[in-house]
Computed example of a mutant assay.
Amino acid sequence: MADFTDLIARAVSPSMSREEREQVYTVVRQAVQRLQDRENLAGDDPRILLQRHLIEETIRDVEFDIVRFLTLRKIEQARAAQNAEYEAQFAKKR
């Protein structure tokens, strides 16, 4: 499953909008559905249900990683702005 997670993570990026990422996830879901159809398993087969669950869990994990990345980037930008403001104030006092 790690390879699958890596594949999805490479297909999306934090610079993409949520809608663009959702389009990628839709393609992934469709591809998995086609693979499952080839296996000719019943729709309620536990293997298919597990695969679908793992797909959704993987997408959720990738989204979490993107949100975490964006949040850390915003924190770093805020810290840099705060440091710049402090430096500017400190320079005025000299």
Rank of each mutant, 00 (worst) to 15 (best):
R52F: 03
T71M: 12
T58A: 08
D3A: 13
Y86P: 00
V12K: 01
I59H: 03
N83A: 14
L49R: 08
A84C: 01
V62G: 02
E76I: 01
R18N: 07
A91S: 15
M1R: 02
K93F: 11
D65Y: 01
V32A: 09
R29M: 08
Y86H: 10
V32Q: 07
I59L: 05
R79N: 11
A31P: 00
V62H: 01
M1F: 08
R34C: 05
K92P: 03
R47G: 13
Q23Y: 08
E56C: 00
F4S: 03
V28D: 05
Y86D: 09
N40M: 13
E87H: 10
L54G: 00
K92E: 15
A81K: 07
A31W: 09
K93D: 08
I48M: 07
A88Q: 13
I75Y: 09
E39G: 06
L49N: 07
V67T: 07
T5L: 12
I66D: 04
E63R: 10
E20A: 15
D3L: 12
A31H: 13
E20H: 06
E63P: 02
D65G: 05
L35I: 09
E57P: 01
I59D: 03
D45M: 06
K93A: 12
K93M: 10
Y86R: 14
T58E: 03
F4G: 04
D65K: 03
Q36I: 09
Q51Y: 07
A11D: 06
D6K: 13
R52A: 02
L7F: 13
E22S: 13
I48Y: 01
F64C: 02
Q23E: 15
T71G: 10
L72F: 10
V27C: 02
I55H: 03
K92Q: 14
E76P: 00
K74G: 01
R73H: 08
T58H: 01
P46G: 05
E56F: 00
D65M: 04
E63Y: 05
Q36L: 15
S17G: 11
R79G: 04
A80E: 15
V27R: 09
V67Y: 06
G43E: 15
V27L: 12
F69G: 01
H53K: 05
E63A: 06
A11V: 00
T5G: 05
R38S: 12
Y25A: 02
R21S: 04
V62I: 12
Q77P: 00
Q77F: 10
R52Q: 14
R47K: 11
I75W: 09
I66A: 03
D44R: 04
A88C: 07
K92A: 15
R18E: 14
V28S: 02
R68N: 08
S17H: 07
